[in-house]
Design a protein around this nucleic acid. Sequence first.
DNA 1: ACCTGAACACCGTTCAAGT
DNA 2: ACCTGAACACCGTTCAAGT
Lengths: 234, 234
Amino acid sequence: MANTTRSRRERPAKPALSRQWIIAETLEIIRTEGLEKATMRRVAHALDTGPASLYVYIANTAELHSAVLDELLGALPPESEGTWSERLEALLRSYADVLFAYPGLARSALLIRPTGPNAVRLYDRVLGLLLEGEVAVDRAAWGLDLLLQYVTGNAAEHSTPSPGDIDTPADDEAEMGILARALHAADPTTTPHIAEHADLVLSGEPTQRVTWAIQALIAGIAATPTPVATDIRP
Amino acid sequence: MANTTRSRRERPAKPALSRQWIIAETLEIIRTEGLEKATMRRVAHALDTGPASLYVYIANTAELHSAVLDELLGALPPESEGTWSERLEALLRSYADVLFAYPGLARSALLIRPTGPNAVRLYDRVLGLLLEGEVAVDRAAWGLDLLLQYVTGNAAEHSTPSPGDIDTPADDEAEMGILARALHAADPTTTPHIAEHADLVLSGEPTQRVTWAIQALIAGIAATPTPVATDIRP
DNA sequence: ACCTGAACACCGTTCAAGT
DNA sequence: ACCTGAACACCGTTCAAGT
């Protein structure tokens, strides 16, 4: 009886399943517990239903994660100030920030190739900025993929496998420790360059390195001719 | 390994569990059925034992996959002919080939940061070739990570999620189809650059694009100064 | 000492059956 | 028409108990 004038702090008592609602709930779980907890079963449970019900709206787990990512890409900051390359760097960094903020989603992004409307808008902005910088259109077109893949791959590599979870107390740090130990233990006979330059290989803050990498990518893209004929346009 | 004089085609009847044997069996499963089938349970089953037995030799699933990858890296071709950049390209392509040959392993490589002895040897070869090309040592040191991450990420992106399995009839192709459709359907008003250059963005054979990307990366690495002081050496 | 059966706590996905 | 209980076929990992 007395339908729905309930405490808003409590679960809103079965607010009718829908694609939007499922995505929102999934995002909430990813935010608080990480991607690996955002399972069909767990999302269904959070929505007070069984897993089978989700399949009315979402084809499978991959599509669920894909939809969440596109949702997030819709919230990228719209435009910054500066030269084309500064704006491009800022855009890519904001994309990287999204992926870092939701550890595990980068891994999804790497495998499912985002194709939602917001992803396409991101592609368009990157391509537009490269063209504004007078990068040859064929290099810009191929460079688009290279830039986004780098950022995505980098985020995937550095995002902790299980965020708020059991293992991985300070995961990326621990990971780096393992790598650092492996490099410092390098045998000077069989691996002389690593043995000599281990510190340099490991040097730099992550943000410094991402910034440098993006600059290097842009420079390389602008300077390297593709095998694709450029005389496509009249 | 472990030369038991048996019919090599039949299962060698419980050849005593060992780390090497587990890794070899896992590799075989990955080769024939894909990474996602190389579960602790399935490997244990293939070795005629229960999953608990594997934990005597291997800490967890991640370590198992990690060990398999390092095993594969030990078989990279040793040295090619040509200029330093040609040899570097060849080396990176052979690394990419390994990852492509074992779909799914690239994804692991992206997340676990290979640190085995063979991985370190690969790092050393890449770094050595960059230095041979007279790339500044700080740029070479940072570029190492950029190059390997690109190749790994690229392989991860293009490797089919489930190789010899139920879904994904021609998976990467299907994926590309989805992307192609999304780009060709781009709205000329909101995403004008993509709408105009969709074909160019999608153009080129995968190998052409990888080759171009590696060249662009090398050029960018060589040309972009890092914030790390270069006057480390006397 | 070395190994493992059995259990615990989960998964994705399907489909017959309910409302 | 829309939804879902229950089942199917799996997972990783642990630990008490066996040899």
